[in-house]
Design a protein around this nucleic acid. Structure first.
Lengths: 217, 217
DNA sequence: TATTTATATGACCGCAAGTCAGTTATACGT
DNA sequence: ACGTATAACTGACTTGCGGTCATATAAATA
């Protein structure tokens, strides 16, 4: 999080991204800067000025790579979601299914904070085309998870698609709970301690996963 | 939504609220103004200036009745949640339980939009004491719903408390989906129409309710 | 009626997202 | 190698928000 330091590296000492590859590299550097900052200081303190500083770039440059702050966040979320699904596809077995479904979203950086804000914050300020693109991506991810569920439980794809949707729903809810728990004030009264407990996402989402998987078998 | 018009009414032609009753009346008027605006133009366009105008009061006055914008929204949410739970308590029978659980949150004005933003937006800017108060209220509501579930299904309170929590989780998720669907752009491609369908909350939450109630019987 | 109290006001402040005229690194033609 | 064209990059600026506070004054009190 050192300021002033150039965080991105285009091959050589070049200062401007002209080729597509260079542009992609810079875009990646900006996303990395934003990701790191969410991880360290959280979503609320994330500003475009701060991202620019961290990425070693001016604010205006950010707007060459994303039309709005939210579009930048959406790109971050899309990457994270792809990772989550890939992890589920790669690691699921009939025995580990329940655990993998809970672990994957919990482990991929920034996935939960962004998921929690996807519909109410991020999609608020996205142009129609990227919004549609995002919706299609979400739908496809849902289908891929349904296919994993079908493969590992033996249930019909028709039933696992519904299950996949309930999982998405629960994951959304659990992500919300997790955010609430993470914003822990200094002096929490004893009786409220459980509501600010760590691992809120895991414990609450695991309940939903169990319920859904039971319904499939 | 006419501007300039005085929307609140303290007995007589009095211009300042001095007694506790008058203060409560003014507070109610402010909340009513905010509620009406969310209903008409949505959450995003809600500003303190606009609320003040609608309520026929100056911006500074709003801050005599709520420390922050979010505290005002939280008060609105608390009222709505109380209504939802009361409706469930009042109307639930073994036969209607599933329907009532879905209808109540869907019918109470501003409940879903505020629920969807409760943890990620509203609680962001609330002082510790009102935050704790809110957490206790939520916990109590959860318990009351669990008691209704126990009474109407015959399941043990221990099991219905867990069920109540999964319902809260799912309701959160379904509220998110609902927000997403409500922000419908002008030209939705045909293949995406289902993702912007009306009644998104009802259909998705009903699935979760069925699953949970099945688990209880 | 004079005095006190505290409600109500709105110009003002700080801050964040987003813009754009101007600068200059890089590619390309000669 | 050099000049010219292109477009990546910059940061001062605009806009609009939440929130503050010195001031005005309605209403209770003496």
């Amino acid at each position: 999080m050192t300021s002033g330091e150039i965080r991105y590296a285009i091959a050589g000492k070049r200062k401007r991204a002209r080729s597509d590859g260079e542009k992609e590299a810079r875009r990646g550097a900006i996303l990395n800067a934003a990701r790191a900052m969410i991880g360290q200081t959280g979503f609320e303190s994330l500003t475009m000025n701060a991202i620019a500083k961290e990425a070693g770039v001016s604010k205006g440059t950010l707007y060459l790579y994303a039309r709005t702050k939210e579009e930048l966040l959406l790109a971050l979320f899309a990457d994270a979601m792809e990772q989550v699904v890939q992890q589920i596809e790669a690691e699921a077995t009939p025995e580990t299914l329940a655990r993998v479904l809970v672990d994957a979203p919990a482990q991929v950086p920034v996935f939960l904070p962004l998921l929690a804000r996807l519909f109410t914050v991020i999609e608020t300020n996205i142009a129609p085309e990227p919004l549609f693109e995002q919706k299609r991506r979400m739908r496809e991810m849902g289908l891929r998870v349904a296919q994993v569920l079908a493969a590992q439980t033996g249930a019909s794809l028709e039933r696992t698609r519904e299950a996949s949707m309930v999982l998405m729903l629960s994951m959304q809810g659990a992500a919300q709970f997790d955010i609430a728990a993470a914003r822990k004030p200094d002096d929490v009264p004893e009786d409220l301690a459980p509501m600010f407990a760590k691992e809120t996402f895991r414990t609450s989402y695991a309940m939903a996963v169990r319920l859904v998987l039971d319904g499939l078998s």
